[in-house]
């Protein structure tokens, strides 16, 4: 079996350069590649274009990279949880492309499936449609949206094996599997790295062919954005 294991986050991201386009998995702070984000902040790489559903919060997730002004452009669907982001956006320091969440996911999917574009009704008749080709199928209008072209995809999985196969846990799956398929180079950090053969092939979410580098992450904080509970009666 081909071995995809690297020593850790620093090695995994060592060839990410200024100006690269990165996909980062996660929804809110759920399922984000914490170790790689820390390594990117340490490396100080700049002028990045980041494709990620959200932009973290002020002091966690992609918010840490925004604090250090490492991000030139953000492509996201919802950024409401990050005050520093909103400040950089309104002051013009940060370029932002807000796109519908399903369009974001489908543009990742298209890249991973080797398709140049998709057609979606999301955004028809809105400012999202400006400058885009509209095609009518069966009486309904659709926007043509291109597959993403990302240098690196950085994802977080629950378990992975040395061959790069990934299993995600609960709703931390979110964008991770589609982004894993979409990067020219895909980096996966996992909570538990096992030998090839230890995972049931029937249970694999992302086949190892899509993953170029894998390592076992450490010190996962897994911060909760909205802690909502009920009390036992």
């Amino acid at each position: 079996m081909i071995n995809k294991v690297v020593s850790g986050a620093d090695e995994a991201i060592s060839d990410i350069e200024n100006g690269n386009t990165l996909m980062l998995g996660g929804f809110g702070l759920c399922g984000i590649p914490e170790n790689c984000i820390t390594a990117l902040v340490k490396k100080g790489v700049k002028d990045l274009t980041c494709i990620s559903n959200n932009a973290g919060v002020d002091d966690f997730g992609i918010g840490l990279m925004l604090q250090k002004r490492q991000v030139k452009k953000m492509i996201s669907s919802y950024v409401g949880e990050n005050a520093e982001f909103e400040r950089q956006l309104l002051s013009g320091e940060l370029e932002v492309e807000l796109i519908p969440q399903g369009t974001l996911a489908s543009r990742c999917m298209a890249a991973g499936y080797g398709m140049p574009a998709i057609f979606t009704p999301a955004g028809v008749g809105t400012e999202v449609a400006e400058g885009k080709e509209v095609r009518n199928f069966n009486g309904k209008d659709y926007l043509m949206e291109y597959a993403f072209d990302a240098d690196f995809a950085i994802v977080k999985a629950w378990k992975g094996d040395t061959a790069g196969n990934l299993i995600f846990r609960s709703t931390s799956r979110n964008f991770n599997p589609v982004m894993a398929m979409a990067g020219k180079i895909t980096i996966a950090e996992v909570e538990e790295l096992v030998e090839a053969g230890a995972l049931d092939p029937d249970q694999i979410h992302t086949p190892g062919v899509f993953v170029h580098r894998i390592f076992q992450g450490a010190n996962y904080e897994k911060r909760i954005e909205q802690r909502t509970v009920r009390t036992k009666k």
Partner: peptide, 16 residues
């Protein structure tokens, strides 16, 4: 100029 939070999944939902 005031509030920039993004559409999240709302545009997909209302379109379909």
């Amino acid at each position: 100029g005031k509030m920039v939070k993004g559409m999240g999944g709302a545009m997909d939902l209302v379109a379909s």
